[in-house]
Each structure stands twice: as structure tokens, then as C-alpha cells.
Amino acid sequence: MSDKSVTPKTEYGVVARFEDPGALLHAAEKVRDAGYTKFDCHSPFPIHGMDQAMGLKQSKVGLIAGAGATFGFILGLWLQWWTSTIDYPIVIAGKPFFSYQAYVPVTFGLTVLFGAIGAVAGMFHVNRMPQWFHGVFHSENFARFSDDAFFVSIEKDDPKYDRTGALEFLKSIGGAEPEVLEGE
């Protein structure tokens, strides 16, 4: 049995609050330009141009959805080819066993289905969801991110990260109440 009081606190990173969406957007640009790569912006609503301001690359969700759609397309064709020519061939209306024309609706349906599943699953994967806890929750103040406040957090894993430097930096670009995220 370990004594909880001696468990060392783990450090996650630093966070600071900004006044409005515009300030958050400019702060993101400055964090990006300062060379930080592992940082995030938190806002109650989406902000136009944030991807660019944060220097994010194009999302991978499209590729994952595309892979899902391709899988659905092949599955649809294979399923109908196998059932109607190998497993249980029946002549329907005098047409050939492999009547690809008739396969199009189901193939199309499965392409769309797996494309959509790929998009949703890909979105979850890229967002690293579900995730029950996140370092930023160590900040009491942070709860306001879903109400009326805008935050920038810089993670400890960032190669450029050092605690005091990051705190000073966030303060210098106009961040209010900068604090260190740490807890058990």
C-alpha cells in the first residue's frame, strides 16, 4: 500500500486565459511563431482561421474516411459476387450470375456507410477520444473554457518547454492568470 501523500506530482504543462476569440487567435499565432508544437487552444465555440493560426496540417480524417469508403466499396462488390456466383448461384430474370449493374446500389450504400463510419471513427481517433481525464483539468479556472473564457495550453512534452519560460511567454503575449498544470 502506498502512501498517497508522498506520490510525486506529475506536471502536465502550463495554461493561460485570453479575453476574446480575437485575442486567442493572435495568441495562437504567436505561440506557433515562437516554435512551440505541442500546444492547444480551448474555446467554447469554433473560431474561423484557427487551424491556420495554430499551424495545423490538413486533418487526417479525410484520408481515414476515404480508406473506409474504399473498404466498403470492395466489401460490397465482393459480398455480392461471392453470394451470387460462388455460394448460391441462381439465375434471376435470365441475367448472368455476375450482374454488376445490379450490385451498384448495395456497393454504393456500403461505400457511403463505411465512409461515414471512417469519418466518425477517424474523428474520434484524431481527437484522441474517448479520454476521461486531461491535464488541463488540474486548473480550477479552466472550467470556464466551456462558458466564457479562451485558453492556450502548452504541454510538457513540447521540445521547447521549460516551466518558467513557458509561463513567462504566455504572460508576455497577454495571457491572464498563467498557471502550472500539475496533480496526481
Partner: peptide
């Protein structure tokens, strides 16, 4: 096309 092909 498909409706016409199918009905034949």
C-alpha cells in the same frame, strides 16, 4: 440505366 436494364 438500371431500371431499364433490370426490367428488360
Amino acid at each position: 440505366y438500371m431500371l431499364i436494364w433490370y426490367a428488360n
